[in-house]
């Protein structure tokens, strides 16, 4: 027993694993050898610019299309050898709506329940519960053509949950949602993860990856160009800085001199970028209290008044822009 525990600690079970996954459309290589490791019960976010191959990856992993090369397994089932076993454990909410527009929301959910063979009564109960959970009870029997984009998206996800999948693929699940709906969806994702579900997410919203994902992979030019936790990725890029705003040009000039002196905490040779029009001085910083204090102390000592001060720590946008080349 003890040995077992130790084993799971050192090598967490991988729910999604790909090795050298390849896909080309004609002469265009979309995936050029993708290696992914997604531990069970975590959220993995795949980031990448438009056309990077995120949807292609999701379509391969969800058995919709076959890879040209490489191996992949989901929940221990090989994609090429046992796609049917994979289909039994996954749920997919694609980038584009996959609801039956000619049926009502309730009928859509009952259709899913019937296809998962939940039985008549349990199926209806499950449909009703999901309508409630996704705030669709009132509109449940109206035609879907009257639904807003957000309602449609919620129904899409509700349909994915009918079969209680252990692995869920979400391809840009919050595209086009307002901030409130987006937060609601994040809350649902967190609930699912708390229940042990593994989530494979693609997104254009870096805040979303920041909020939800344990691990992030950045896809560009057919390859994973960076992978790690949010903190690890942020460490890859410089870009943290303090911006100090002054009342007038005289103060700014004096500050530039004071700040350029050596010996700033954490910054042996602080390069101060002075903007005479905006009356700001910008200097690199890790955003720590210590570095802030040392800047303010130095300005204080020189008797220079500070109008305003802002701290910019590197975010995923910086990471994304730094890592994904401009190929257009």
């Amino acid at each position: 027993m003890a040995v077992m525990t130790k084993k799971t600690e050192t090598a967490p079970a991988l729910t999604i694993m790909t090795t050298d996954l390849r896909k080309a459309y004609g002469r265009k290589t979309v995936l050029d050898g993708i290696d992914l490791r997604v531990p069970a019960g975590t959220v993995f976010a795949l980031l990448g610019p438009n056309g990077a191959g995120k949807t292609t990856t999701v379509r391969i992993l969800s058995t919709l299309i076959e890879a040209d090369g490489g191996q992949a397994s989901v929940a221990g089932h090989d994609l090429a050898a046992a796609p049917e076993a994979v289909r039994r454990v996954i749920g997919v909410t694609g980038q584009f709506s996959a609801v039956d527009n000619l049926l009502s929301a309730r009928e859509n959910l009952i259709l899913m329940a019937d296809l998962y063979r939940l039985g008549r009564r349990p199926g209806r109960h499950r449909a009703a519960a999901l309508l409630e959970r996704f705030g669709l009870s009132e509109a449940a029997d109206q035609p879907i053509s009257t639904y807003s984009g957000g309602m449609r998206r919620r129904l899409d996800l509700a349909m994915t949950l009918v079969g209680e999948p252990r692995v869920i693929f979400l391809d840009e699940p919050t595209a086009g949602l307002d901030p409130r709906s987006r937060r609601e969806l994040w809350a649902i994702v967190r609930e699912l993860v708390a229940d042990g579900v593994t989530i494979f997410l693609t997104t254009q919203y870096l805040e979303e990856a920041d909020q939800l994902a344990g691990l992030i992979g950045v896809l560009d030019g057919g390859r994973i160009v960076a992978e790690g936790t949010v903190a690890e990725l942020k460490r890859l890029v410089p870009g943290g800085h303090i911006t100090v705003h002054f009342a007038g040009p005289a103060a700014l000039t004096a500050a530039a001199v004071a700040l350029a002196a050596t010996g700033l905490v954490n910054e042996e040779r602080a390069t101060v970028a002075v903007d005479g029009d905006a009356l700001t001085a910008q200097l690199p910083s890790d955003g720590s209290i210590g570095s802030l204090r040392s800047v303010l102390d130095r300005l204080d000592a020189a008797g220079i008044a500070v109008e305003d001060l802002s701290v910019h720590t590197p975010d995923l946008d910086d990471v994304f822009l730094a890592l994904t080349g401009d190929r257009r």
Partner: peptide
């Protein structure tokens, strides 16, 4: 998209 959904289901 609904038929693609069916294809990802058992």
């Amino acid at each position: 998209g609904i038929v693609d959904r069916f294809r990802t289901m058992p």
